[in-house]
Design a protein around this nucleic acid. Sequence first.
DNA 1: TATAAAAGTTAGATATATCTAACAATTTTA
DNA 2: TAAAATTGTTAGATATATCTAACTTTTATA
Lengths: 220, 220
Amino acid sequence: MYTQAEENYLKALFSITLEVGNEEGVGTNELADYLKLTPPTVNNMLKKLKTKELVNYEKYGKITLSDSGRAHAVYVIRKHRLWETFLCKKLDFNWNAVHEIAEQLEHIDSPELIDRLDKFLDYPSFDPHGDPIPDAKGKIKTGSRKLLSELKPGAQCRLVAVKDDSTAFLDYVNRLGLKINSLIEVVDTVDYDHSMHIVVDGGSHTVSKKFTDSIQVLAV
Amino acid sequence: MYTQAEENYLKALFSITLEVGNEEGVGTNELADYLKLTPPTVNNMLKKLKTKELVNYEKYGKITLSDSGRAHAVYVIRKHRLWETFLCKKLDFNWNAVHEIAEQLEHIDSPELIDRLDKFLDYPSFDPHGDPIPDAKGKIKTGSRKLLSELKPGAQCRLVAVKDDSTAFLDYVNRLGLKINSLIEVVDTVDYDHSMHIVVDGGSHTVSKKFTDSIQVLAV
DNA sequence: TATAAAAGTTAGATATATCTAACAATTTTA
DNA sequence: TAAAATTGTTAGATATATCTAACTTTTATA
């Protein structure tokens, strides 16, 4: 099986590729930066991951995940997001307090445990942050995720994730009554500064472009 | 905090002391045997645990837990047993299938997680094997645990644990309809071979001394 | 295109937790 | 009580995952 360190590298490679849309691969320094490790450490581990055929990598070249590497990365993400969902839905943790615990839980090695947890949570498709949870076959529901700022007047959507972790931002989100899965209606936009009129839970608000850029939604 | 290895040593020391009733302390080889490690490995770790003041230990002497060592050992046992309870009660695992997974989960480091899990499970006092779960203050419900074979006719008790892991035995236990917390009534005993007449769930059975020696109960 | 900057690698050290082989102390027993 | 058996320790090796310092290759730029 895979060590915790190995799983962290696989997950990091998968995430960087997604976030940066980095098709051609990831660099050693970039990965080191992301994992908060030094480049030689990463270089070292890369050799190991290569002999295990989890990554494609040549000296001085870019790093990509192999098929088996990607499959396991997706499984680690599945574990992480299922545990986050458990922590929030069942243990009443606040959704912004679960990440660190899930970082530990995601390395527990028991496929049966994960399948049963999935069932116990009623096969959720999204975690408390609105990120999709890969299913048992590794399939990830993509949907048409957009930023709230991209929507036109008249559009309806549901909040699936936020892209800002600051307390100020999260407090504001809460104050507006926004939660995961909240229905948001775009009433109007202001051309001048791209601020937006939205309706949430019957309440009407005007929010800035800065704000709508940090809200990820799924069109209804 | 404590590493997984350290937690395993602490737990082992606590368990050996309990099981063997070993008041004066544990030997290096004994501990090595229990943990399935070599004596030098244990010797090495002991030095480390001593500098951390988790054990009392002098060269060639017996090993005992310090107060802080014992406190943490109890906490690890609390974590382990709460997770086992979760796996059985919530995820429908069979009670003899949860140990290995709990061995992993017990090392997750988050006191808040454990407190919330405890609450979620409604503050259980016993795990699925009938072993007591230390409470948040480290207090362990002792009760008057006995073997079923020690009881006299007329006595009533509840099953808290079994001392045999064989399939044959467990199948028999199931066939009798015995579960954790089952009420058992001792009707009669046969002097000749110490077999016992018991009533479980309205059903009457005659069981051998060999059997009643493997059933731990708590008097009602 | 030559040089400077950035990115990547190698070599060697450290910490943890384990091992085997050899040796030392303690305990048992003949 | 001396020899044998058991128990415990030391020394040195291995594997994993990390680091720093020094060096090399690639890329950017003047």
